[in-house]
Design a protein around this nucleic acid. Structure first.
Length: 291
DNA sequence: GCAATTTGACCCTC
DNA sequence: GAGGGTCAAATTGC
């Protein structure tokens, strides 16, 4: 019952996105209509999450997957096993290295860039991922060599929702860029000290988080100039004008990456019982997403 | 000419 | 052996 409800909502969500994308592609979408589409998508998304919260645990299921991974139709146990292993690796990558995962929504397929996050990144690889429709792109900090900054991130378009990107950050920026702009902002957040770890970015990058109705401040994507394509036949990546951040994050350094906990549980755990140091962040994020 | 991206190959882990 | 992550030479764009 709830399962079919979730499926239906997922279908509606996809249709809204497709409608929006198609109209956007043909310049048929006036601003007012775009707002309605955004709101509609956002509300369906919220309903979907509600529906999923009723479901019994089903990690890796078509609709229950936090990555939006669509295993429906594959019916392939081997693939599923690989997918689970991939998920496990995603969350357990390097023990002790902060890992923050986010989902970034853009408002149209034209705006298909994982947003500017204040750092400059250099792409160093791209891989087709088993069971995933779109390839995963690998970025490292531009200042890796000059300043020994070992922060990296992975960006991958979510299957079934071309407007949604998974962005996984690994490591902490130690470059000057981190010391200037980012930390200055961090210091404005209560309870946060300069130079705090990657988890702080959750606050910053979702600072403008809204339920997806309002454009955020202008963005540009320095690391991925025109011509970069994350695959799937979509246009080159340009500057998104409006983004919705769905902060469904994990923080390996906080102990959520270990212990065999499934991904869905990690999210629930994180939102329900966030580590003390992150509680205020998740209160804000939760409020932004669910109120 | 330099910097960034692309992409095939290699390495590591499971 | 398969798959994910990284390297590095070739290519491209400014």
């Amino acid at each position: 019952m709830e399962n079919s409800l979730a499926s239906e909502l997922a279908r509606v969500q996809t249709m809204v996105r497709e409608l929006e994308a198609n109209m956007d592609r043909q310049d048929l979408l006036p601003p007012a209509a775009r707002e309605i589409c955004d709101e509609l998508a956002s509300r369906v998304d919220r309903s979907l999450r509600m529906a999923r919260s009723w479901l019994p645990e089903s990690p890796g299921s078509a609709d229950g997957s936090p990555l939006g991974h669509d295993t429906a139709g594959t019916g392939n146990a081997v693939k599923d096993a690989h997918f689970k292993r991939r998920q496990a690796r995603l969350y357990n990558l390097v023990k002790g290295v902060p890992s923050v995962r986010k989902q970034v929504r853009v408002t149209s397929v034209q705006d298909t860039a994982p947003m500017e996050d204040g750092f400059s990144w250099r792409k160093y690889g791209q891989k087709d991922i088993l069971g995933a429709k779109y390839p995963r792109a690998y970025f490292r900090c531009t200042h890796r060599n000059t300043q020994s900054c070992h922060a990296t991130k992975q960006v991958q378009r979510v299957d079934g929702d071309p407007l949604l990107f998974d962005v996984v950050y690994h490591g902490t920026h130690t470059c000057v860029q981190a010391a200037n702009g980012r930390v200055d902002q961090l210091q404005q957040q209560p309870g946060h000290a300069a130079g705090q770890e990657q988890s702080s970015q959750l606050v910053l990058e979702s600072g403008g988080l809204h339920a997806g109705f309002e454009p955020m401040s202008p963005l540009h994507f320095t690391s991925t100039p025109a011509g970069t394509d994350l695959g799937g036949g979509y246009p080159p990546l340009f500057s998104p004008t409006s983004l919705e951040w769905q902060v469904r994050s994990s923080h390996a350094a906080a102990g959520f990456g270990d212990g065999g906990m499934d991904v869905e549980h990690q999210y629930e755990e994180l939102f329900s019982y966030p580590p003390e140091s992150f509680q205020w962040e998740f209160q804000d994020l939760y409020a932004a997403n669910y109120n």
